[in-house]
Amino acid sequence: EEKRQVKQVAKEKLLEQSPNSKVQVRRVQKQGNTIRVELELRTNGKKENYTVEVERQGNTWTVKRITRT
């Protein structure tokens, strides 16, 4: 359940930055209360990979860091 929520948060964050792209989740890793989500962003056939680190704060998820990989 929490992985599902985190995927959603990570996707939304990337789509905010580039709204007309397609996002696909590649991998989800958990480390303590930080969850790392690896995503693939496609814009006009151009692929970019991103890693989004999401942290739990109380009962909400906040995006800590977005890295292009």
Rank of each mutant, 00 (worst) to 15 (best):
Q8H: 09
R42M: 11
E38V: 11
T67Y: 15
V63T: 02
Q24E: 10
L15K: 06
V9D: 01
K64V: 15
T69Q: 12
R36S: 11
G45Q: 07
V28S: 02
K11P: 01
Q8M: 08
I35K: 01
A10H: 01
T62V: 14
T60K: 13
T62Y: 15
L39K: 00
I66T: 03
V28Y: 15
S21D: 02
Q29F: 15
A10N: 01
K7P: 03
K47M: 10
T60F: 12
T67D: 06
E2Q: 11
V37P: 00
L15W: 04
V37C: 03
R68A: 06
Y50M: 03
K30F: 15
V37H: 00
S21I: 02
T69Y: 12
K11C: 09
I35F: 15
G45P: 01
V9I: 14
R65Q: 11
N59A: 09
R26G: 06
R65I: 06
E16L: 08
Q31A: 10
L14R: 02
Y50H: 02
V54R: 00
N44Y: 10
Q29N: 11
V54S: 01
E40S: 10
Q8W: 02
N33R: 10
L15M: 09
V25R: 01
V23I: 12
Q17P: 01
A10E: 01
T43M: 09
T69N: 12
E53F: 13
R27L: 07
R56H: 06
T67G: 04
R36C: 07
K13E: 03
L14M: 13
W61K: 00
Y50R: 00
R26K: 13
V6Y: 05
N20A: 09
T67S: 09
T60A: 11
V28G: 01
T60R: 12
V6A: 15
E16A: 10
N49K: 14
Q5H: 10
W61V: 04
P19A: 03
N49F: 14
G32D: 05
R65K: 13
K30Y: 15
Q31M: 15
A10V: 10
N20L: 08
V25A: 04
R36D: 02
G45A: 07
Q57S: 12
Q5A: 12
E55S: 08
K64C: 08
E48K: 05
V63W: 02
R42E: 13
R4S: 10
N20D: 09
E53C: 05
K11N: 02
N49W: 14
Q5F: 11
V9Q: 05
T69G: 09
K46T: 11
T43I: 10
V54D: 00
K64P: 02
V28L: 12
L15Q: 06
K30P: 10
G32F: 06
V23W: 03
K46H: 12
V6L: 07
K46V: 12
E1N: 06
V28Q: 02
E2N: 06
V37R: 00
V28P: 00
R42V: 14
Q29Y: 15
N33S: 11
Y50Q: 00
T67F: 14
Q17M: 15
T43N: 11
G32S: 04
V9N: 02
V9P: 01
N49H: 13
R42G: 04
E2Y: 04
R4A: 11
A10R: 01
Q5S: 11
K47Q: 09
S18E: 08
V6I: 14
I66V: 12
K22M: 11
K7A: 15
I35M: 13
R65N: 10
R27K: 08
E55T: 09
W61F: 10
E1H: 08
R4N: 09
V9Y: 06
T43Y: 11
A10F: 02
R36Q: 10
L15H: 04
K22Q: 13
I66Q: 01
R36N: 09
E16K: 05
V9W: 03
T67A: 07
T60H: 13
T51M: 12
I35V: 11
V54Y: 04
Q24Y: 15
L15A: 04
K22H: 12
E48A: 08
E55A: 06
L41N: 01
Q5W: 08
E2G: 05
K3T: 15
K7D: 05
R26F: 09
R68Q: 10
Q24P: 00
E16D: 05
Q29L: 14
T67V: 12
K3E: 15
T51C: 07
Q24D: 07
E12A: 14
E1D: 07
L14H: 01
E48L: 06
Q29P: 00
L41Q: 04
N44H: 11
K11R: 12
N59I: 07
V54I: 12
L39M: 09
K11D: 01
K13S: 08
K3W: 15
R27V: 04
R36I: 15
N49G: 09
Y50N: 00
Q5C: 07
V25E: 01
L39V: 10
R27Q: 06
E48I: 08
R68K: 12
W61R: 00
Q29A: 11
N59C: 05
L14G: 02
E53P: 00
Q29G: 06
R42S: 12
G32C: 04
V6M: 04
K7C: 13
V54A: 02
E53K: 02
E38Q: 11
Q57H: 11
V52D: 00
T60C: 05
K3G: 10
I35L: 09
Q17S: 08
R36V: 13
N49Q: 12
T60N: 13
Q31K: 11
K47T: 13
E40W: 12
S21N: 02
K47R: 13
K47W: 10
Q5E: 10
N49T: 14
K22A: 09
Q17V: 12
K11L: 13
E2A: 08
N59R: 06
Y50A: 04
K22C: 08
L41W: 02
R26M: 13
V23R: 01
S21K: 02
R36F: 15
K7S: 15
G58C: 05
Q17T: 11
